[in-house]
């Protein structure tokens, strides 16, 4: 079954990938800072994400993950620094930069009174692509997610997971070069979570790039090529899983251990280990 889903995904992802004007780096953050009055939410992040990579963005609650993601998506303007998407600076060429992105926020508000299909056409329209090809792609993705029979129902009748699947679909129909996604697995059932992982893989195989933030460390560990850990608005660790293991000086550490160590919560690791050992 997984095989056929992957084939379907490959067919749907046809045409994804860099155009002729492609730059090697898909995403380039240079010294981005976000201040709210005196409070510094993001404090000078520098980051390059090459094309064809799944990049994971981790951090404790309130570390500045969502703020960073919203700046990448063009929803927030950084106080300082620049965000460059596929060679286009978001500040100076917003339309070109944004047309390369598909953004999936964490628990967003949706137009409750539109049907799923109408919402997808609306989103395609915003990207200037409300054409039959987009609709076919949308139908294909909805089918994979078991959502096709719900296409004509109003979004207000959707469950949380169904909304998440609709959003993922909406971010893919205009064939972006970069998917920016905040907490991708929230609300998804195991089957859909598996499909999403496959989808990410196929998407980067075809030249797409994924920037995701998550608290589900197993997912990040399993899916991401490189990982950055952010704390108090600054990146404190960055690299592949092996790089991170070297960093914390522990050969066999899993991401959870690494995360707790670098974010300064080692004692938490012991608590977790204690809980796992106890006879619950």
């Amino acid at each position: 079954m997984t095989e056929s889903v992957q084939d379907q995904l490959r067919r749907l992802m046809d045409g994804v990938g860099p155009g002729e004007d492609a730059t090697p780096d898909m995403l380039e953050l240079t010294g981005i800072v976000k201040r709210y009055g005196d409070f510094v939410a993001v404090d000078g992040i520098d980051l390059r994400v090459p094309r064809g990579e799944i990049f994971g963005f981790l951090g404790p609650n309130g570390a500045g993950k969502t703020t960073t993601i919203r700046m990448i998506a063009g929803v927030l303007e950084p106080t300082e620094g620049s965000v460059v998407i596929g060679g286009n600076d978001l500040a100076t060429h917003p339309v070109e930069a944004k047309s390369r992105i598909g953004y999936i926020p964490d628990r967003p508000f949706l137009y409750e009174k539109l049907s799923g299909g109408e919402f997808l056409r609306f989103v395609s329209g915003l990207w200037g692509k409300d054409e039959p090809a987009s609709e076919d792609r949308a139908d294909g993705l909805l089918e994979i997610f078991n959502l096709l029979e719900w296409k004509h129902e109003l979004i207000e009748t959707y469950s949380h997971g169904m909304r998440q699947k609709l959003l993922i679909t909406s971010a893919l129909i205009h064939q972006p070069e970069l998917i920016v996604i905040d907490e991708p697995m929230v609300g998804l059932d195991p089957r859909s979570a598996r499909i999403l992982k496959d989808l990410f893989r196929v998407y980067v195989e075809r030249g797409g790039t994924v920037f995701l933030s998550s608290h589900t460390l197993e997912v990040v560990e399993a899916v991401c090529d490189r990982i950055a850990i952010i704390k108090e608005g600054a990146i404190i660790a960055k690299g592949t899983m092996d790089d991170l293991r070297t960093l914390v000086d522990s050969g066999g550490a899993d991401l959870e251990e690494i995360f707790l160590k670098v974010t300064g919560n080692e004692d938490m690791a012991e608590v977790v280990a204690g809980l796992q050992d106890s006879s619950f």
Binding site: R70, A73, G74, V75, P94, V95, E96, K98, S99, I101, Y103, P105, P108, F109, L110, Y111, V123, L126, W127, G128
Partner: peptide
């Protein structure tokens, strides 16, 4: 509340 979509799109 839909600004996340409208602002992240090239609209």
């Amino acid at each position: 509340r839909m600004m996340w979509l409208l602002r992240s799109s090239p609209l």
